[in-house]
Each structure stands twice: as structure tokens, then as C-alpha cells.
Design a protein around this nucleic acid. Structure first.
Lengths: 153, 153
DNA sequence: GCTTGCTCCTCCAGTCGCTAGAGGATGTAG
DNA sequence: CTACATCCTCTAGCGACTGGAGGAGCAAGC
């Protein structure tokens, strides 16, 4: 952001560092995205440095936001493919988002159960010795736990 | 769980497969836990096979439960160390559980914000073309997102 | 006794999404 | 013209497993 000609209409002059600043994606991560084909390889300067256009930076911001929302790389790849052909139906994008929503809801449910169990553990802890500690006991006794989830926590 | 001599007092006769069944931890994962020192290396039969006692299986179930609850390996290692010396104060175990609870609560908050955003995205989707798709748009436009979280999703 | 077929063994490579470091080239400010 | 920041490529590592290759052991049926 220090060397930023952000107010100019310059569309092909951003170094990887500037792109990182502008998009919020770290430099090595940008290179990684290029490597896995999520971001097209930009042209290079005479010195061999990557020169990004605003479109690339927007793409990076898109990726970052999607990652923050927990979309996997493959889902993002699919979303980007859709974005690249804007005359298509958005049913596919909708489906991807719905899948993600379902995942998120399941995870919230899991974590809520987990929270209850942790709270129970902590409340049961009489701050005495481990021998009578609910925390350890609850973890050891699988049967004491009634929430039957099977996602990750 | 099928060949379980759970009623017998057999303490040292379980193959790794039986231990996996009984504990719910997969065979390669058990070997992995041994490798990283989370589970002590059991004695071997003449043929070189691991022979687990009930205590090992309980330990595995403990680990599994803790993993399901989202405890990291290092936290579990700490809990197991506590468990191995039951005459100590359970303050440490309590602290670990409390840390974990705080994490879980934060994560629930994140996911709830995320859920709202996904819902907003999906509801805005008019099932038309990608060009006007809220899902894509919301992801592209970082400014449209007001939830300022910074954990993982 | 012998073969079938399951389980077990070790070792190594791969997963996902990065992150960090080495060792060197390039670009820029004073 | 000299510092120094930034960039380059390449490789290895993280956590927590998962899977496969290639071989040995073992129980049961014929």
C-alpha cells in the first residue's frame, strides 16, 4: 500500500507485494494460487517480476473472501469458473453456497453440543485432584457423552 | 466390538484391529499415535504383532473422544500426562478445557456470522444469470460483508 | 499338509492449504 | 553508487492423518 498508485487507472502495474496488500492475500499464498492454477500466471516485467492487473487483484479478493467463508479451493475453483462466464445460470453457484451452508449449520450444531459438554466438564471440576476431575473423567468415559455427531469439531 | 471379550478379564490379548474396533480409532491412526508418542508402544507377540491391553484401548477411546471434541494432539498429550498422575491438581486440566471452551465459543460466533452471510447470499440469488448472482457478487465484493471475523471458518 | 484369505508388519508418499527458509537477482531511494 | 527492500525459484515443513506397496504371520478349510 506504500507504493500504491491506487488512484491512477493503471491496470497492469502491481507488484506481487502491492497485490498482496490490496487483496489481503499474502505473497507466498498468491504464488501458491498461481501454482495450483487458481490465479492465472500474470505477465512478467523485464526483470522477471509478476505484474498484476486490477482484475487479478479482484480475483484474489474474491478468493480470500471465499476462503474466509470456509469454501474449499475446489469449490472456489468452480465459483471462479462460473464467474468467468457470466452469461450462465447461477444455479451451480447457488448449489455450492447451499452445500456450504449445510456444512456450516452442521458444524454449528456439533460445536454447540461440544460447548455443552465442555461446560459440563468444567462445572463438574471441583478443583481437587485429577482422580476426581470431571474433565478427565468425561473424556475417558465415552458413554457419558450423548451427542452423536460424526463431523469434525 | 464384535469379538469383544469385554466380559472376560483378558487384559493383554487385543490385536491392533480389535483395538481399533473397540476404541473407534482406525488402525493406521493407532500406529501413528504410537509413532508420535501419544500411545506407548505395546509389547509384541512372537510374530511381531502389537498386543494391546484394555488400558491401551481406554487410552485410545480417551484420545478419540478428545479429538472429536476438537482438542489438539498437544492438548491431549497434556491431558494424558495429567491422567497418568492422578494425584495432582486438576487445575491444569481445567485450564485446558477452559481454553478449549473459549475457542469453541469463538468458533460458534464466527460460524453464526458466516451462516448469516451465506443465507443472505442464497436468498439474494434470483436464479438468473451469474452476472446478477448475489452469491458471486457477495464473494467478489468484500465491502458488502460486514462481519469482521478473523478465525478460521 | 497345504492353500486360501485375512490381518498384520514396515516404509514411504500423498492429502490440504498454506508457511518459512535458503540463496540469489532486481529495483529504488538517497 | 551503495544500501536495502522486494522480488525470484526451489525445497521442506506443518498438523493429523490416509493410503498403498510389498511382504510376513496366522487360522481355518480341504
Amino acid at each position: 500500500m506504500r507504493e500504491h498508485p491506487a488512484s491512477t487507472i493503471d491496470t497492469r502495474a502491481h507488484s506481487i507485494g502491492a497485490a498482496a496488500q490490496a487483496s489481503g492475500v499474502k505473497v507466498p499464498t498468491i504464488r501458491y494460487y498461481e501454482e495450483i492454477g487458481l490465479l492465472p500466471a500474470p505477465p512478467r516485467t523485464d526483470g522477471g517480476r509478476r505484474a498484476y492487473a486490477m482484475g487479478d487483484i479482484r480475483r484474489l479478493a474474491f478468493i480470500r473472501h471465499a476462503r474466509e467463508l470456509g469454501f474449499e479451493i475446489e469449490a472456489i475453483r468452480a465459483l471462479l469458473a462460473l464467474q468467468d462466464r457470466p452469461d450462465q445460470s447461477c444455479a451451480a453457484a447457488d448449489a455450492i453456497a447451499r452445500d456450504r451452508l449445510a456444512e456450516v449449520e452442521e458444524r454449528i450444531a456439533s460445536l454447540t453440543a461440544l460447548k455443552a459438554e465442555l461446560t459440563r466438564m468444567i462445572e463438574g471440576c471441583s478443583h481437587g485432584e485429577v482422580g476426581v476431575c470431571r474433565v478427565i473423567e468425561t473424556l475417558a468415559d465415552h458413554g457419558a457423552c450423548r451427542h452423536h455427531r460424526r463431523g469434525d469439531a
